[in-house]
């Protein structure tokens, strides 16, 4: 097996989703530019070129409003499923495991193995931080992209208002605006729906071979098993 084939086999998920992300982002830029130019032309303004468009706040707010909700979804799922359970769902731990679990179960401190990450074996702040590192990164990405959404959204709305000879909107006022909360909540509701329905559907439905599903023959009551 060549090095490239081995790399693709070892990294199939990240490569396929990474390429899909880039293609979708480029597609969004083309479609977004066309939509923005229709808006500009109806206002009698000059249309923008492709590279000019991808540097606009209009493009930035459309991207970041989706990013923030995706990272929020993963953060809530990671954090919530420490304590929240769903009987029969492969997305849930077994019913007696709610909480942070014992050091032995988590293989930290004296229970760390030879191949455990170094920070799992050491105690103190490093172990505390490493034990929550995935959630911390997801939360940071969520807060960063939500902040970016608020700043670029305020700029995009202000530009649109100036074009219509109206006052711009300061960032602090934008945080209380209908535009900000409409963009935010329309994304949050769809993410929460997707996560909640996945947890329930996976109790009764199966996808043979997927680690996100229980084995096809597993009982509906079996919790915390992934195929």
């Amino acid at each position: 097996m060549s090095r490239l084939s081995r790399f693709l086999k070892d990294n199939g998920i990240s490569v396929v989703f990474g390429v899909g992300f880039l293609l979708s982002l480029i597609g969004q830029a083309f479609a977004g530019r066309a939509e923005f130019n229709e808006e500009l032309q109806s206002d009698g303004a000059r249309p923008v070129g492709f590279f000019e468009y991808v540097a606009t706040s209009h493009f930035a707010v459309d991207i970041t409003e989706n990013w923030q909700s995706e990272y929020l979804q993963f953060f809530l799922f990671l954090f919530g499923t420490v304590w929240l359970l769903q009987r029969g769902s492969p997305e849930s731990k077994e019913m007696h495991k709610a909480g942070l679990e014992s050091d032995k179960d988590q293989r930290v401190g004296p229970h760390a193995r030879e191949d455990s990450p170094r920070w799992a074996a050491v105690g103190g702040l490093r172990q505390t931080l490493y034990s929550r590192s995935l959630g911390i990164v997801m939360l940071t990405a969520f807060l960063g992209s939500w902040l970016a959404q608020s700043i670029s959204g305020a700029a995009a709305l202000s530009e649109e208002r100036l074009r219509g000879l109206q006052e711009p909107v300061p960032w602090a006022s934008y945080l209380l605006s209908a535009d900000f909360w409409s963009r935010t909540l329309q994304n949050w509701q769809s993410e929460l729906l997707a996560v909640g329905s996945m947890a329930i559907f996976a109790v009764y439905l199966r996808q043979r071979g997927s680690p996100e599903s229980k084995p096809v023959g597993a009982s509906h009551d079996a919790t915390g098993i992934e195929g």
Binding site: A60, A141, S152, A156
Partner: peptide, 14 residues
Amino acid sequence: AVLTLVVGVPLTGC
């Protein structure tokens, strides 16, 4: 990527 996400994108707007 993280730097672009956290720092770069807000700068587009502000």
